[in-house]
């Protein structure tokens, strides 16, 4: 076996090791490269900026712990922004395993900004039904969620006063790690109840949401950890996403180098094969 052939059949654990190293080193020794804000993310930011005090903002955290590093920073940045703009915040999740994560995130940011549960924000938690749940909320919020996560009747909460259904919500953002997520909120929510909808998502599903972005079905898109980093810059509060971008750069370049190497070896073996007849 020739050298390039050997290299092409390299034990994948060596690649694993390289990737591990490329993630670890930048986290220990950050460089802080500049991050450019893309229009998709800015659109979400601008829309929240344009909402008057007391507007109703619904954040649906449709992810589970598997996507925490990508979507939790987005949730934190959006909540910080919404709270600092004095919006009334309704938080919930369509993913049962994500309930605890969503609850912790909301409460942590609320505490940080001195917001009061039940008055400035509410956490509705999880409820089954997916599309049917969203329709239910669009028809009658108090019926779809008779009580919030802590068991307080939703009808009596100050934050939900005059919000009998989704038509009275000014902005909905779904942070999605898959389905149910942004598409579900459009299909069963915005399509009928006509609120403005924005999306945040993991890098895996982001490319699939671009047709909806283009046709205006969602008014902005925060994609993955990079999107979260951009949002952190927009609200001027660097968090874990900005901190992760150096490692992101390093691993991406490691993979690009690997791809170049693999093609070099590949063409070397091909040429050798051609020469050998």
């Amino acid at each position: 076996m020739s050298f390039p052939e050997k290299m092409l059949r390299i034990d994948r654990r060596i690649i694993f090791f390289v990737i591990g190293l490329c993630t670890l080193l930048p986290l220990l020794y950050p460089v802080d490269l500049p991050i450019i804000v893309t229009p998709e993310v800015r659109m979400v930011y601008d829309y929240i900026e344009s909402l008057p005090d007391g507007s109703v903002f619904l954040l649906s955290m449709d992810f589970d712990p598997a996507s925490k590093p990508e979507l939790e920073p987005q949730a934190i940045a959006l909540l910080r922004h919404a709270f600092s703009r004095n919006l009334r915040v309704i938080a919930m999740t369509l993913w049962l395993p994500g309930t605890g994560l969503a609850e912790q995130t909301v409460n942590r940011v609320a505490q940080e900004l001195g917001k009061v549960n039940g008055e400035d924000y509410v956490f509705l938690g999880y409820s089954p039904g997916v599309g049917a749940l969203i329709i239910g909320m669009g028809q009658d919020l108090y019926k779809a969620f008779p009580s919030d996560y802590y068991g307080n009747p939703t009808k009596t909460l100050a934050v939900l006063k005059d919000v009998p259904n989704l038509r009275h919500v000014d902005y909905v953002v779904s942070l999605a790690a898959g389905t149910p997520g942004v598409e579900t909120w459009y299909l069963f929510g915005k399509d009928k109840y006509q609120f403005e909808l924005g999306g945040g998502c993991t890098g895996v599903i982001a490319p699939g949401l671009y047709p909806l972005l283009r046709s205006g079905q969602i008014n902005g898109l925060i994609g993955g950890m990079r999107g979260a980093a951009e949002y952190e810059l927009l609200i001027d509060q660097s968090g874990s996403a900005v901190a992760g971008m150096d490692a992101q750069s390093a691993t991406h370049f490691a993979i690009i180098v690997l791809v170049i190497l693999c093609n070099t070896f590949y063409f070397m073996t091909r040429r050798a094969a051609a020469r050998g007849g």
Binding site: L8, I10, R12, I15, F16, V18, I19, G20, T23, D64, P65, A66, S67, K68, P69, P97, G100, L101, T251, A254, I255, L258, V259, L261, C262
Partner: peptide, 22 residues
């Protein structure tokens, strides 16, 4: 639950790299 599920999916980072190389 959070670290277990998170790590399970983080393994994919390594596999995507080796898939790219291969």
């Amino acid at each position: 639950m959070v670290p277990l599920q998170g790590t399970m999916f983080a393994i994919l980072a390594f596999f995507i790299a080796s898939a790219a190389y291969r």
